[in-house]
Design a binder for these strands. Structure first.
Length: 810
DNA sequence: AGCACGCCGACT
DNA sequence: GTCGGCGTGCTC
């Protein structure tokens, strides 16, 4: 069809379709998967050569004269001689872009580490001597061309504005240059090759230079704490970083960026139980036959799912292929990471949450070259460029973190299935609390095959769960409601027995608001229709949606009333109550305020594991965390805070959270106990969770979803319109709804516009239009029509946001 | 999304 | 009289 000397290019702009470019004379035609630099309007963009346009392009309008062919512009440069992305990743990204009606070029940008892209090193030069003004700019450039960053130092924060004007006036010109990203050193990690004894001897030996002794002592202090970075260890030992290079030369340590190359794997340790055997067998058959099929492995915590995954991954590697293991999140020091390293050795690449860009690039290259045959990682691992992929595993399939919450929004769990389909390989998802969607698809939906692991392999007993009815508690104790009597007593007993307690509380359910006693209004964020929460330590009000902070006002901003009251339980207040009751207990808090970096997270768990903390109070983080043997009590304050949310998945989330948290108790040799505080103890999510009964929960929930027409029975799409003026937002939403109604026709239903549950965010009013249909294709087509309409083109990417399969209706 | 063009109000 | 607000349109 097209000329030999043209290519299709996907560019990272919020526009559907691809763009055609000319390949200039003398330039070799780049293959699909190669990056190219292209002129785009007044800009220069990095795009990908793709083989064909996606099917989202508009069919030529009937009757109307066909649009004249656009004037083609030439490519500026080709960045790759070999395709950066292999065909299957290209195909996967094309699927994603079609599935969610998102521009291909934006998805491609998520598919590889940005550290691989060249970085602009443009410099500014004096182009003309004549002219008036811009004295500072002239002076700064008098002695030669300078980079933007240098000029910012000289000219201050206004540098960009000044330069822009000078550029327009023709006084200065820009010298385009591109270079590789530079990476900082010091991020290498240290693995100990010597034993403790040898290290100790050498560290004490007076013949060892002092700075090396200090370095060795610092390493001894780390013990088994994973692999410290050179920078970290050096600052701790107060020695220069090269000390560790010397130690490496002595053979005491190995420095590596990710996985020590010398690490050998170990074969599977023990025999599988019959249940595991059956699961492995079923998937293995499909794997060897090179077929695509989706499996859902349903098994309670401790039933041995991980072992099933590892056996199958070994099998994929055994036939010369590679495997992808997706997890919600992973830290390098986690139990799972250690287990995988031990089993697979240097064949594994772990894309963990605390990676530097340099490590990311390196692991990506290791995977693409086939040096790493197994990639384990979170959402972004979906695009790992593994050659001859034979198996995809999605662990904790129900976990919300598989969803990318900022645009381009997609579910990495769902797209993992697409990756399996593209590669014609099995996809194995696993969970102890499957999502209602997946369980439906694995049963009456008929899309997946259900595998079940019934027993808890280790034999540990499932802890009994007690539910405290907080309404009665409130009545009987006259309003004293943070900590129920039953939970307080249990904490006391646990402390006395020398065991540990985990308390789960939620920020949303336990926030402190500042309330005016005159008009009854809570102090709200100026930009969002959300009450600000009071952080007592810092004595400021914070908006948890946009991050705005302001001091506690002296008077009510709405009515001027001077009597302000602090209401709510407060995150920090939970701790105060516990401190008051148990003054000798050692307490630690784990939430977003305390955990800024991955190392904070590791540090707190380490202390908890070491028994240095008696009571750990925290958010979801503690529910998902490690298993700590000393924990015998788990308390959940307000288990059902989610149930108040206007979202069809809130029951599911409640069930998952409670079940997960309950699973933290009694993982050691001592029996555990779980206490749930609830205002709705009769709700099926709370009730079923207290009995560890997923099936009971599922039956109720699927019945409700069928009744109301929610996923998985019907597909949903959510279209959001935003504008600072509420009437404008409403008008835009009406127009969008009209276009959607016409496009969807009788294939489904369009509701709205309605106000979003949080009607104003970051200064903009939000209106929602919701589409539902038994056929997701119909929704896609309707959303596509909206985006291609002149209305859609005007607003897409700015104040219009369309989401197929939304994660929540908020 | 960026970027430019074009058309109306309130300032030097 | 200009500066600058944002509505509209375009990007191979």
């Amino acid at each position: 069809m097209a000329d030999e000397r043209t290519v299709q290019v996907a560019v990272p702009v919020p526009l559907a379709g691809t763009f055609t470019y000319l390949v200039p004379e003398g330039m070799e035609v780049p293959c699909p998967g190669c990056r190219v630099r292209v002129p785009f309007g007044k800009r220069h963009l990095l795009g990908f050569v793709v083989d064909a346009a996606p099917e989202t392009q508009e069919p030529p309008p009937e009757g109307a004269s066909p649009a004249p062919p656009p004037k083609l512009r030439p490519l500026e440069a080709v960045l790759d001689t070999e395709p950066l992305l292999p065909p299957d990743i290209l195909e996967l990204t094309r699927w994603i872009s079609e599935y969610y009606q998102l521009p291909w070029g934006l998805i491609l940008r998520c598919a590889y580490p940005s550290g691989l892209d060249p970085v602009s090193r443009a410099r500014f030069v004096l182009a003309a001597q004549a002219g008036e003004g811009f004295e500072k700019v002239r002076a700064a450039l008098a002695d030669g061309p300078k980079a933007l960053s240098t000029l910012k130092e000289i000219l201050g924060p206004d540098a960009e504005t000044h330069l822009h004007k000078a550029l327009k006036a023709g006084l200065v010109a820009q010298e385009e240059r591109w270079g590789a990203v530079r990476h900082r050193a010091g991020h290498d990690r240290i693995a100990l090759l010597w034993g403790q004894e040898e290290l100790g001897t050498k560290a004490a030996d007076a013949g060892t230079p002092l700075f090396l002794r200090k370095a060795l002592q610092a390493l001894l202090a780390y013990q088994e704490r994973g692999y410290p970075t050179v920078a970290d260890a050096a600052s701790r030992a107060k020695v220069p970083q090269h000390a560790f290079q010397e130690l490496a030369q002595m053979g005491a340590v190995e420095l590596f960026e990710m996985v020590p190359a010398g690490l050998a794997g170990e074969p599977s340790p023990h025999a599988l139980n019959p249940g595991q055997e059956a699961c492995v067998g079923a998937v293995s058959e499909v794997l060897l036959a090179r077929r695509h099929e989706v499996f859902l492995l349903f098994g309670v915590t401790g039933s041995g799912k991980t072992e099933v995954f590892m056996r199958l991954m070994e099998e994929a590697l055994g036939v010369g292929g590679t495997a992808l293991y997706m997890v919600p999140e992973i830290s390098l020091t986690s139990f799972l990471a250690r287990r995988l390293l031990q089993r697979f050795g240097a064949k594994v690449a772990i894309l963990h949450s605390a990676m530097t860009e340099r490590e990311r690039v390196r692991q990506w290259i290791r995977a693409s070259r086939g040096d790493a045959r197994l990639v384990i990682g979170p959402r972004s691992a979906l695009f790992a460029p593994l050659p001859d992929l034979r198996l995809v595993v999605v662990d904790e399939e129900h976990d919300g973190s598989y969803r990318q919450n900022e645009p381009p929004r997609f579910s990495a769990r769902d797209m993992a299935i697409i990756r399996g389909r593209v590669g014609n390989i099995p996809v194995l998802m696993g969970s102890a609390t499957p999502s209602v969607e997946s369980y439906y698809n694995a049963t009456e939906g008929g899309k997946y095959r259900l595998l079940t692991l019934p027993e808890r392999a280790g034999g540990a007993a499932i802890p009994p769960v007690e539910v405290v009815d907080m309404r009665r508690e409130f009545e009987e104790t006259a309003g004293r409601s943070t900590l129920s009597r039953a939970l307080e007593e249990a904490v006391g007993q646990t402390l006395e027995a020398g065991r540990q307690t985990v308390i789960l509380r939620n920020r949303l359910g336990f926030a402190t608001f500042v309330l005016c006693r005159k008009c009854g209004r809570a102090v709200q964020c100026d930009d969002c229709s959300v009450s600000m929460t009071h952080h007592r330590r810092a004595n400021v009000l914070k908006c948890h949606y946009c991050g705005r902070q302001k001091p506690v006002p002296a008077a009510c901003p709405s009515c001027g009333g001077e009597f302000l009251q602090f209401l709510g339980e407060g995150t920090e207040r939970v701790e105060d109550v516990l401190c008051e009751k148990f003054p000798t207990a050692r307490m630690e808090r784990m939430d977003r305020d305390r955990v800024k970096r991955a190392s904070d997270y590791d540090r707190i768990w380490k202390a908890f594991e070491a028994g240095e903390v008696d009571i750990l109070v925290g958010t979801q983080m503690v529910a998902k965390g490690h298993d700590v043997a000393g924990v015998t009590l788990v308390g959940i304050l307000s288990a059902d805070f989610l149930l108040g949310m206007p979202d069809f998945r809130s029951a599911e989330r409640t069930f998952q959270l409670v079940t997960q948290a309950a699973g933290r108790a009694g993982r050691g040799e001592h029996a555990g106990r779980v206490i749930i505080q609830s205002f709705h103890p009769e709700h099926h999510a709370v009730e079923a969770a207290s009995r560890h009964d997923f099936l009971a929960f599922y039956e109720k929930d699927i019945r409700y979803r069928k009744l109301v027409g929610y996923p998985p029975v019907q597909a949903l799409a959510k279209v959001e319109l935003r504008h600072p003026d509420t009437a404008k937002a409403e008008a835009m939403a009406r127009e969008a709804a009209g276009i959607l109604r016409e496009a969807l026709g009788r294939a489904g239903r369009v509701t709205g516009p309605v106000d979003a549950p949080i009607p104003r965010l970051e200064g903009k009013y939000r209106k929602l239009v919701v589409l539902r249909s038994p056929a997701r294709n119909a929704l896609r087509a309707a959303v596509g029509a909206l985006l291609r309409s002149s209305f859609g083109k005007r607003h897409a990417g700015k104040d219009l946001d369309a989401e197929i399969d939304p994660g929540s209706m908020m």
